[in-house]
Design a protein around this nucleic acid. Sequence first.
DNA 1: CGCTAACATGTTAGCGCTAACATAGTTCTA
DNA 2: TAGAACTATGTTAGCGCTAACATGTTAGCG
Lengths: 343, 343
Amino acid sequence: MSNSNSGQRRRRGSDQPTLKQVADTAGVSTITVSRALNTPERVNEATRKRVLEAIDQVGYVPNLVAGSLASASSRFIAVIVPSLANAVFIEVIRSLQETFEARGYQILLGNTDYDLDREYQLVRTFLGWSCSALVTAGLRHSEACLGLLGHWDKPIMEVMELGDALDLNVGLDHQEAGRCMARHLVARGHRAIVYVGACLDRDYRASMRFTGHREVLDATGLDAPLIELDRLGSLAAGATGLDQVLADFPEARAIHFANDDLATGALLHAQRLGLRVPEDIAIAGFNGLALGQHVTPRLTTIQSPRETMGRLAAEQVLRRLDHQPVTQRQQNVGFTLMVGQST
Amino acid sequence: MSNSNSGQRRRRGSDQPTLKQVADTAGVSTITVSRALNTPERVNEATRKRVLEAIDQVGYVPNLVAGSLASASSRFIAVIVPSLANAVFIEVIRSLQETFEARGYQILLGNTDYDLDREYQLVRTFLGWSCSALVTAGLRHSEACLGLLGHWDKPIMEVMELGDALDLNVGLDHQEAGRCMARHLVARGHRAIVYVGACLDRDYRASMRFTGHREVLDATGLDAPLIELDRLGSLAAGATGLDQVLADFPEARAIHFANDDLATGALLHAQRLGLRVPEDIAIAGFNGLALGQHVTPRLTTIQSPRETMGRLAAEQVLRRLDHQPVTQRQQNVGFTLMVGQST
DNA sequence: CGCTAACATGTTAGCGCTAACATAGTTCTA
DNA sequence: TAGAACTATGTTAGCGCTAACATGTTAGCG
């Protein structure tokens, strides 16, 4: 029996004002308040005004959790990157964030630390939050992760590189970028060229660039020695890289670094060692970070359009969320060789 | 009348498996499945195993939105910073994220772009997500924002600086840091010292450092000229800053920059101009970014313990969330003067 | 003036989960 | 050996909101 009052359970929940209280204050029903907030064009202007006043009056803050449960979707966009230590991802995140936030979406940031199992866990968690879309850096995923995403019917955007994508794809051709820089070095007359990467098994985009690099050197009849550092790209690692090249390949006259952090670290280290760049050793990087453009000699590098990549990716996803047709599921943002004085 | 079948409403919601289906498969009630996931120690081991198998079997992914609504709290931690362009905040975010993620909390990142109104909007949104705690960079908030937070009963952590905090506080004394560097420059024998900042109205911590700087110069009987750049700290802005000092204060022999980006930009620009550092002009920064430690001459700067700050802040919040007593509501993480060759 | 369409608002029934209370079985204590 | 204390699991009632359907009201039309 419903023992009407005595045996009542204590309520939980926050003691924040709810839609109901706003509705009572404004003298309308809860759904009208809901509509005044979410689809204002469907509510008479006078009513809407009354509702907004009531909201102010009672100090109402919408409970987005409840809204998301009822509508089975949140205004979250899951963004998964392999690292927050790398400026490249930060810049992509920043431009994704700007574009999404302007449209009322909130980014949910996940960091895999280059571990596909962690990616799977993050995807699981994010699916649990009823995200509106997923943006992930890279095309490689675990089987388990693919299993989850296979059932999912919301937009999936894979950024950074181009290839066989699950859904949407915005990026650039890393192998071609590697070829491009190798061609430049060869054209400069260099013959003894070393490629220096950091953790290429994890940063597989850098290893794709090495593949392109090697193709060109092979075709030119040159050796393509590789030095792999066991810690991720940083200025300090770049200095170590230079030392290692000098020790292992004293004949080397040019170094193609996997990224600008390494290259700049090496360049600054060369200064400390009293080596002339590019006369004694030429140095090239990849990414086009501000850093490399401020050192003397200016770093030769490849500019990856990170802002553009983030913005385009976000716009593409937003288009899909607006049910507008997406004409190009894959977009190549390209890259630009920036010839500095370091080669 | 309840027309039992014909007039049924169509359901919405995702077609994902729910707790109920797991429960049926495992032959237990939903609450047991819930407990097996959230408080496993309260479920018999054999039962728990059966439940976990059922979860695998049906491919269940917990709906965290529903869970949060029912429990009136999510495992979100709101983190609000003024900028993602500044490496300092990125590093703090990274160490917050590591510490929180290890304990199963997810960061909800907000970027105010140094705008207190945007901070208010972000706080509103985040409260709507039933966050477990709020971490914010800085002690300054709008009235409206304080109004919202006043009612809120969950942990609030203010990081970066020290002062009159709402709840918890981990940071350093920026005014003292400014004094420290000014003392160093004076001790080095410099008399004509210029402070160069960027958007000091927004980056008010930098202006606190200037206040400390001026105090010391005042006490020494020296002028404390200030140059303020109208764009945020970057290498390029630092170069501009140096140019401006050379133009406006040709007698200047030392520049105290508001941060390392500016200082390093100026240092690299000095190299391009053929100026000797520190003989022609001494340069000092603030933050202790890796960058400044790799240039030649090595930058004199103040190391702010950003990793420590993030970790301590997160640990303090976690302690509060675990209902453990928090002994120190305010923690000073201090700073270290790092004397390089640039002064 | 009756009909339809468009608009404005309301009623109802959950979304999927967990807090609170309830109940059974088991171990321990006096 | 009664019953207190503990363990393991279940039942019930929402959390606060919105989709779907329902109803009322006004405008437009021949």
